[in-house]
Nucleic acid binder design. Structure first.
Lengths: 190, 190
DNA sequence: CTCGCATACTCAACTTGTTGACTAGGTCGA
DNA sequence: TCGACCTAGTCAACAAGTTGAGTATGCGAG
């Protein structure tokens, strides 16, 4: 039920096609939620039959037609109800952490390589987030922006995504150091 | 397929019952993975038929019998293969973030209450993690521990869970400040 | 002039994760 | 001695998320 609400929150910015939403859920909304296009299209259909969104087909020349979705009054109410509900805490659920947990009796070199790769990925993501942030701020400094913007939600969630990735980078660096030092010790001690 | 590997990683510490694993996945392994007992029992059955683990039934007086699971050689190989594989990055996927994204047009007071609640929850979790950490270190300081411990995986993943929750606390505090300042402004400006 | 990528989707099958209820004895505090 | 909680699970049904393939057109680079 949460993807539904994430989609509705995304539609607060105005109408959007499934395709655009898919891109958003792979880029900007992705600071805290991700999903595949398939999941989106399926959910959009359901939401339409449930009356939470309406679609308007736009005929395009030289491009496939697209359906632009927007929130209905019912959808808006639903979303408000959701904001008022309780929200369960989440865990990280990261495969890389499972690999690190098992690294001592697994392929340590491969795990180190995975950590390095992840670190780079996270650094790239931070770059993207920073660009997005600059765009959101639109030249204002943070205080000004927060005081005058119509919506602060997107900015706050972006901050969360940003700090998550920064944290990832720090943890990757720390873990690499530990595993490398350990490798050196194990190589020389026996 | 990742729960499988998480379970195998948990069994590296020695044999364990489904029930104990369930508690672990709600407490210690929970620094980065969670699951319900039902999911575990189902997965344990499958893993047994796949030959990754073996069960040994222990008859108990005054208690229901239990089945203690341990890794087989095949399971160990599988796990090593997993550590050598590539791991997809994850996103946070937190309902609270969806609520914050939509807060501007939803029930701001309720969202603030949710953030406060989450902050407390995260602080409590940090306490638990710190106790676990002290237990893992067993009186040694971090450097000593990392140099001498048989396994560092559990410690590294614990660190990740810890920093995730610390980050949550910081973000909650920041978001509350922003939303409160904004509430004050909106109350007085119109 | 072909290859690959971008737009804009659809369909089917599968795996994971969630929810709620049920069994059944033991222990512990009020 | 009653009710609540702990141990140690099982079963069923459903919701959510993943994977892979297919359709059709347009555009630009090599």
């Amino acid at each position: 039920m949460s993807l539904r609400n994430a989609v509705m929150a995304a539609l607060l910015d105005g109408e959007s096609s499934g395709y655009d939403l898919a891109k958003a859920f792979d880029a900007s909304v992705a600071n805290f939620w991700i999903c595949t296009p398939q999941q989106l299209y399926r959910e959009l259909d359901r939401m339409e039959t449930d009356g939470l969104i309406t679609a308007r087909t736009v005929e395009q020349e030289r491009r496939p037609n697209k359906r632009l979705f927007s929130l209905t009054a019912t959808g808006r109410e639903e979303l408000t109800r959701f904001t008022a509900a309780q929200h369960k805490p989440t865990a990280i659920r990261d495969e890389l952490l499972v690999a690190v947990l098992a690294a001592d009796s697994g392929d340590v070199e491969a795990v180190k390589a995975s950590i390095r790769e992840r670190k780079q990925w996270a650094e790239a993501k931070i770059q993207r987030y920073e660009r997005l942030r600059a765009k959101l701020l639109g030249g204002l400094d943070e205080e000004e922006f927060l005081a005058t913007a119509e919506r602060v939600g997107p900015y706050l969630t972006l901050l969360r995504g940003l700090s998550f990735e920064r944290d990832n980078v720090r943890w990757c660096a720390r873990s690499l150091t530990v595993l490398e030092r350990r490798g050196a010790r194990l190589d020389t001690s026996p």
